[in-house]
Amino acid sequence: MARSIIVTGGFGVLGQAVAEAFAAAGDRVARIDFSPEAPNAPGETPEGMLDIGGVDLTDAAATQRALDQVLGTHGGIDVLVNVAGGFSWEMLEGGAIATWGRMQAMNLLTAATITQLALPALKASAAGRIVNIGAGAAIKAGAGMGAYAASKSGVHRLTEALAEELGGTGVTVNAVLPSIIDTPTNRADMPGADFSAWVQPAAIARVIAFLASADGGAITGALVPVTRGG
């Protein structure tokens, strides 16, 4: 039976890979994104996908409207994958304090807001799954990574706390912690790097798909490193 999947940040490189992996398995996928338009050409939304753009996931009312659209179209929510987020490299000295708030909003508050609002539907599912995107860089932050790592560390703590909170339900909560993801933006920012050592979005998508599967149902509260190219 086809499941109802939500992928936040679904218009980005990783979000697209995750959404496509679930769609290829026959699931009904909703891609929710802050960007107003999906990356595919108008009228070419992949089969089985519902695209909802222009959603500020730190705004509870806007997020609830997006969830209502998913519920109205797909009839429920079985899996929530929180990909939405952002990155900033900035030293504290000479940097902007506002960057810390922006990273918290983009990486942590987006996940917390939609997860809280989606919980009733996820708990009503036969096997609800929540998968968050953490970061290997949040295990030990390097110079310039403070704001980003702090926000992703918050995602890790959200994952652990919510897994315990939902321990008496059928909902599991896990996070994947990628190292550097092979994206066009990262290649442009680090042209001298060894791209072969970076993690492919499709590899991350496969780990997420496993955690969201029936076979992954025994795992909850885990922070799973994803560090090989794939």
Results as ranks from 00 to 15, higher is better:
residue 4 S to Q: 10
residue 155 V to N: 00
residue 109 L to Q: 13
residue 118 A to H: 06
residue 71 L to E: 04
residue 9 G to E: 04
residue 32 I to G: 05
residue 128 G to S: 07
residue 155 V to A: 03
residue 147 A to D: 06
residue 12 G to L: 08
residue 107 N to K: 14
residue 107 N to V: 14
residue 14 L to Y: 11
residue 155 V to Y: 00
residue 11 F to C: 11
residue 156 H to N: 08
residue 40 N to W: 15
residue 65 R to A: 12
residue 88 S to Y: 12
residue 26 G to I: 04
residue 71 L to A: 04
residue 210 F to C: 06
residue 46 P to L: 07
residue 155 V to M: 05
residue 225 P to G: 04
residue 30 A to W: 07
residue 7 V to K: 09
residue 46 P to T: 03
residue 162 L to I: 03
residue 110 T to F: 06
residue 3 R to H: 04
residue 114 I to G: 03
residue 220 T to S: 13
residue 38 A to E: 12
residue 109 L to S: 11
residue 181 I to T: 12
residue 213 S to C: 15
residue 132 N to F: 03
residue 164 E to S: 06
residue 151 S to F: 02
residue 187 R to C: 09
residue 78 D to T: 01
residue 206 R to F: 03
residue 119 L to N: 06
residue 214 A to H: 07
residue 1 M to V: 00
residue 193 A to I: 13
residue 14 L to F: 13
residue 50 L to W: 02
residue 160 E to W: 01
residue 145 M to S: 07
residue 19 A to Q: 06
residue 226 V to I: 13
residue 133 I to N: 04
residue 216 G to A: 08
residue 22 F to M: 10
residue 58 T to C: 07
residue 94 G to T: 14
residue 29 V to N: 01
residue 194 D to C: 09
residue 136 G to W: 05
residue 62 A to T: 02
residue 205 A to C: 13
residue 161 A to V: 15
residue 169 T to G: 00
residue 54 G to Y: 14
residue 11 F to I: 04
residue 159 T to A: 05
residue 222 A to Q: 11
residue 13 V to E: 14
residue 229 G to M: 07
residue 36 P to C: 08
residue 130 I to L: 05
residue 10 G to V: 10
residue 55 V to N: 00
residue 30 A to V: 10
residue 193 A to C: 13
residue 96 A to M: 14
residue 161 A to T: 15
residue 131 V to K: 07
residue 197 A to H: 11
residue 113 T to K: 12
residue 135 A to S: 15
residue 78 D to C: 06
residue 82 N to D: 09
residue 198 W to H: 06
residue 51 D to V: 05
residue 120 P to N: 09
residue 98 A to K: 14
residue 114 I to P: 00
